[in-house]
Design a protein around this nucleic acid. Structure first.
Length: 571
RNA sequence: GGGCCUGUAGCUCAGUUGGUUAGAGCAGAGCGCUCAUAACGCUUUUGUCGCAGGUUCGAGUCCUGCCGGGCCUACCA
């Protein structure tokens, strides 16, 4: 039995995420986790809210709440939505947890001992009105190159020129609009990633099976210009993890916190520690997933994330792990995703454009979203959500192919034989042919899941569903019943046995429908098939079942048009 | 500017190390079935594989250039 550690990129705390965020890491990682559990592997599946940083502070201010309270509330909101989408995290943690505080401070201390931390003094813009230092992008002004009023301190949106905040004419705070800004000298810690460049390079080079999207981004950063640059890991903020060397103070760093990108990936470990504590386990329970000296050698660690997260997971976080000189488990495989666009453009929080997780669940059950999003997950390039495509995918795949299959065979059996598996007749060549076909497709399905090729897996699953309709159509028990009821009974028995098989195979994608099928067939506890022949003899004659309600209601054209108009956004 | 990804049927996408008549699903057309959510099955139409060159006995697949779409470019997270 293999041990699989799975982490999903952490959703940021400042608001409800849209479908693009959902499909870019949480949903595919959930499919992979469910699949591995179904195979009988031991799985630790971790996610958390990423709670630190300036945007969290600003969002809290806007909401009129203390930042810790705001984060606690938003964490609950996100946890409920995760549950609504049936994301099966073993633990959904918080990067502000005491475990993450302790681990982050510990690792910083170890990095310092290893000589990998540098203290640098730098100039930073301070806003007197806001009472805070401003990140470059929170300073606005007139672009010196093109005269555009509204250029940000890192880059002008209008002419795309890279800027320094001090380049801006008439600079002002993007938060308050105040022009009462001054440049202050402030000291920060830098992680000397450049010292680890060769080790990182060797490590990345050894990952020949990683997606190109993943390795190309890592290599670019390793080789760009003078090579991998050192990175600031502290900030002048109130909300965050106080800068300490382990449990000791860090002279000169009083009042500063670690940069959110330093502590966020450490929360993968922190959340596992939170999981252990929540279950009343000893530290060894989480350490056996993360410390190769404490049992994690046989763990396979797979990370899921959007492409924007790749540099931090291929370089920064591994720098932290390697540089600590402690035996932390490094990632074995990184699955990265492109973006999902919305109906001809991008999802936009500010413009209210696109569908957000809470809205999606208000409209339709999670399985509908899971199926469409996963079967269109942006693996090879950006993909696009359109209502037309969504309607088509749900109606055709879920309602017509799978839902109607379950409906037609259970209703036929009920009307001719009653609500139990009929006796009589036996399986013949037609059934054997179906077994052979499903066996082949199942092998392909499992391989695609192992390879984390989600779209291909979805297509294979759909073909397995379709095989049921093909079989029924060819076998035509409704005709045979008139002349040879026993032969018809064998066909019905075989077709009904497909339902629990479909339920188990479909569970990673559509867990609720899977439950519905198992409950209807009174076959709870059915496990992943090792052998298709045996799996299709599970339900014996006399086994009682019930006809489920319509599993997937179709989306009408009117409903589709209405939703399209509703989510088109403002401008 | 630099780096990377991407451009294959009306739509969404597969196409392994270059090898015979380029595939799937959806949509369209025809036929069949009538158990079922007007559902299902079978058959079938459509492609100068972004453009232009090149390498090769042979290129969707490799090389060069160009055009289109996208992402990243280190202080958004």
């Amino acid at each position: 039995m293999a041990r699989i550690l799975i982490t999903s990129a952490l959703p940021y705390i400042n608001g409800i995420k849209h479908l693009g965020n959902l499909v870019g890491s949480q949903l595919p990682s959930d499919v992979y986790a469910r699949f591995n559990r179904a195979l009988g592997n031991e799985v630790m599946y971790i996610c958390a809210t990423d709670e630190h940083g300036t945007p969290a502070e600003l969002a809290a201010t806007k909401a009129g709440k203390p930042v810790d309270e705001f984060c606690a509330e938003m964490h609950e909101v996100q946890a409920n939505l995760a549950h609504g989408f049936r994301l099966s995290f073993d633990h959904f943690g918080r990067s502000s947890s005491k475990h993450n505080h302790r681990l982050t401070q510990h690792l910083a201390g170890k990095l310092n001992e290893a000589g990998l931390i540098a203290e640098l003094s730098e100039k930073q813009v301070y806003s007197n009105a806001d009472g805070r230092y401003l990140p470059d992008r929170y300073i606005e002004g007139i672009c010196p190159a093109c005269g555009y009023d509204g250029a940000r301190g890192d880059q002008c949106e209008n002419c795309t020129k890279q800027l320094e905040p001090t380049d801006l004419l008439e600079p002002r705070s993007a938060i308050s609009g105040s022009t009462d800004l001054e440049v202050r000298e402030t000291k920060h810690l830098y992680l000397r990633q450049s010292q680890l460049r060769d080790r990182l390079q060797d490590w990345i080079d050894s990952k020949t099976d990683w997606p190109i999207l993943t390795t190309s981004i890592a290599k670019k950063w390793l080789n760009d210009g003078d090579g991998l640059r050192d990175r600031g890991i502290t900030r002048d903020l109130d909300w965050g993890i106080p800068v300490q060397k382990g449990d000791q103070p860090w002279p000169g760093m009083e009042g500063k916190v670690f940069y959110v990108w330093f502590d966020a990936p450490i929360e993968y470990i922190g959340a596992t520690a939170e999981w252990a504590e929540a279950h009343g386990y000893e530290d060894s329970a989480w350490e056996r997933w993360w410390r190769t000296d404490k049992g994690a050698d046989d763990v396979r660690y797979v990370q899921f994330m959007g492409k924007d997260n790749v540099p931090f997971h291929t370089l920064s976080f591994p720098s932290t792990m390697m540089g600590s000189n402690e035996p932390w488990k490094l990632v074995d495989y990184i699955k990265s995703f492109n973006y999902l666009n919305y109906d001809g453009g991008q999802f936009s929080t500010s413009k209210g454009r696109g569908v957000f997780m809470n809205e999606a669940l208000d409209i339709l059950p999670s399985d509908y979203w899971r199926w469409w999003l996963l079967s269109h997950v942006p693996e090879s390039s950006d993909s696009e959500f359109t209502w037309d495509s969504f309607q088509q995918g749900v109606n055709k795949d879920l309602a017509d192919v799978l839902g109607n299959f379950v409906s037609r065979i259970t209703k036929f059996c009920r009307s001719k034989f009653g609500e139990e598996i009929p006796a009589g007749g036996e399986y013949g060549p037609a059934e054997q042919a179906v077994i052979t076909e499903i066996g082949k497709r199942l092998a392909a399905y499992e391989q695609h899941m192992q390879d984390i090729e989600i779209r291909k897996a979805a297509a294979e699953l759909r073909a397995i569903w379709a095989a049921g309709n093909e079989y029924l159509q060819a076998a035509a028990p409704w005709s045979l019943f008139k002349t040879d009821p026993d032969a018809a009974a064998a066909i019905v028995r075989f077709a009904l046995n497909l339902i629990p098989l479909y339920a188990v195979l479909s569970e990673p994608f559509i867990p609720d429908a899977s439950d519905t099928m198992l409950n209807a067939m009174n076959a709870q506890g059915t496990v992943w098939p090792k052998d298709v022949t045996a799996a299709l003899e599970t339900l014996q004659a006399g086994h009682a079942f019930s006809v489920p309600d319509v599993m997937f209601a179709k989306i009408s054209d009117d409903a589709r048009d209405e939703m399209q108009a509703r989510f088109a956004g403002r401008g």
